[in-house]
Nucleic acid binder design. Structure first.
Lengths: 251, 251
DNA sequence: TAAATAGTGTCTGTAAGACAGTATAAA
DNA sequence: TTTATACTGTCTTACAGACACTATTTA
């Protein structure tokens, strides 16, 4: 491969107009658990289309950043979340490219799943970014059941549903649920996360038996504030849980 | 929402130059099984960059089609595969958007997983499309082990590896493996697919016991061409296999 | 002491892995 | 008849689900 003429030429082989181009956005499905309920961060749209409707936070992918980098940047810009102090799990979900999904123009969106660590009792504060009239937390299962707030703008209801599905599925065979908790957590906290995401109760005793081998015991104890024995504090170690936990069959 | 002035205005609220744009391609990880070995369809690049190297088939997403539609179109254009006669499974894999992944310009690629049905003894014919010097089938596990052909162009080795990972994982809890076989197949054929993808032998008796409840018996029998009892012909019914099959732990 | 939570033990049913044994058809 | 493949049965081990029970702390 020593044809340096061709090497020089190929850099000019593409010119604008030779190929179709699209606007690329990174949309965010941001999850956090509070009071045993899974919540998603949503913004209320301040402009058309879908003015006044709830939508996923997101924004354009810059010319010199990857979609993942844009997702991280948008997370702080659009929701005001401080990434420096907060451990954050971020992974790509899927890409939505239906030609008519945005009535203004061709917009392709790379959706991302974001998990925020909380202690289960308070949600991180979110604030609206540009173009948004407000930002807040909404219960996910209620939203998807057609309850509070109704359907989201664009195809964001579908994206939210697929984000939940991805998280619920991944929790069967990984310890990713721990990313919704502080570095150290109790088994009850972890079980609460599972119940919040799966929207189903789990037997505490069996959960302990199945989960313990995949966690690391710090030796420390949580102070028992509600009465009862103090729970051991764990950290997540393994990436994969084998055999997988089985989610209760939902009818 | 009855402010029709704003309704009229928003269609012009975006102009070229207001937002970054990217070229969008659909790349294909095309799998088929032959002789108990998982193969991928690859093209040899006819032009720079990576001239002469193997790459995934793919091409630009048109201005009026979704990435999935483009993937289906490229499948026939770039590999010459006739989609009319062939049952094809196509699903989105992931999107690759690293700014430097194509040295010519900003190209974001939506990768797709394609499963072609074969009888296990012959691979569908593939032919090169535009810009390709040739197209052929290559054994996947050998390629990824660094064997035949070396690494692929661009980040295509990574995409191929993640495509394999997706397929192998999905085969644990769905009957998607049947999409690599004709409409009707024997349990031995299906087991061969599992062994080809997982690159590990499976006990025939136990495989039958675990898989049969998720398949439908047609009542017909395959003719025994190699000696031995004629195997029953099944069709795939269930989408989910519960509890999941456990893949042999690989060391 | 009463109440609440954490964690363990036990029992039963089911399924996995290993593998022997039987049935069916081609050479 | 030999051989090769398809399929079933059996045995052991292991884990899931259900749930009782003990231990540990706060009020």
């Amino acid at each position: 491969m020593n044809d340096s003429n061709a090497e020089r030429d190929y850099l000019e082989s593409y010119r604008p107009g030779d190929y179709p181009s699209v606007a690329l956005t990174a949309d965010l499905v941001v999850f956090a658990v509070n009071g045993g309920v899974l919540h998603a961060a949503l913004v209320r749209r301040g402009s058309h289309p879908f003015r006044g409707r709830l939508a996923l936070p997101g924004g354009f992918v810059g010319p010199r950043e990857s979609a993942e980098a844009a997702a991280g940047r948008e997370l702080s810009e659009e929701t005001g979340l401080d990434l420096g102090t907060l451990p954050v799990h971020l992974e790509q979900l899927a890409t939505y490219s239906d030609p008519g999904r945005d009535p203004r123009m061709r917009v392709v969106s790379v959706a991302h799943l974001v998990l925020l660590a909380t202690d289960g009792a308070t949600l991180p504060a979110v604030s609206a970014g540009t173009d948004a009239a407000g930002a807040d937390w909404y219960p996910v299962h209620d939203m998807l059941a057609g309850g509070a707030g109704g359907s989201l703008a664009f195809d964001h209801s579908q994206i939210l549903a697929e984000g939940l599905q991805r998280l619920a599925g991944k929790m069967e065979y990984t310890t990713v649920a721990a990313r919704l908790l502080p570095e150290e957590f109790t088994l009850t906290q972890l079980r609460t996360v599972y119940e919040a995401v799966w929207n189903a109760p789990l037997a505490a005793g069996n959960f302990t038996r199945k989960m313990t081998p995949h966690l690391e015991d710090t030796g420390r104890k949580a102070r028992a504030s509600t009465g009862g024995a103090p729970a051991a504090l764990f950290t997540a170690t393994d990436r994969y849980v084998h055999p997988p936990l089985s989610r209760p069959r939902q009818e």
